[in-house]
């Protein structure tokens, strides 16, 4: 059972690596003439990974036990869950903007670069919150 929990945590961490690394690479590539298909590829990666992140995140909570909401750990978890929820809503908007731009054949590299820059920063905040949760 411990091996299974370790596997779940590993998938969760690797998922975050894919999300953060993918958005940073997309942001950087958009500065230097990335192919137009790159944001669409990232969006496929993003949503596939987000599904895995949810199930492994809940799996982690189940393995470790959820803290009380009034404790310090519980407060950090509340902040992290609220932030991630807002981030997911913003990400859905980002994906739809990417699709609309593609449908219209519009080139908006600056806007896309800002979107992926903001995504990278938001994911860094999630990593910081996760570090506080894991190590205090």
């Amino acid at each position: 059972m411990a091996v299974l929990h370790l596997l779940v945590r590993t998938v969760h961490v690797l998922g975050m690596v894919a999300l953060l690394g993918g958005s940073a690479v997309t942001w950087y590539a958009l500065r230097s003439g990335a192919p137009p298909s790159l944001p669409v590829r990232y969006e496929w990666l993003f949503w596939g990974t987000m599904g895995a992140m949810l199930v492994t995140g809940v799996g982690n909570l189940g393995a470790l036990g959820a803290p009380g909401p009034g404790t310090r750990w519980g407060t950090v978890l509340t902040v992290k869950l609220a932030f991630v929820t807002a981030f997911v809503v913003g990400s859905a908007l980002r994906t739809l903007v990417v699709l609309r731009l593609r449908e219209r054949g519009a080139i908006a590299t600056d806007a896309l670069r800002r979107l992926y820059g903001a995504t990278t920063l938001a994911l860094l905040v999630v990593v910081l919150l996760a570090e506080v949760l894991a190590h205090g």
């Binding site: 669409v40 949503w47 596939g48 599904g51 949810l54 909401p69 869950l81 929820t85 997911v88 699709l99």
Partner: peptide, 25 residues
């Protein structure tokens, strides 16, 4: 992509709101 993204967004947001409400209460 639209179908996959919107469906996954709905599942993930539903799950997150449920976990957040469960945790806060």
């Amino acid at each position: 992509l639209e179908t996959a993204a919107v469906a996954t967004f709905d599942v993930v947001a539903f799950g997150l709101v449920g976990v957040l409400a469960g945790h806060a209460s």
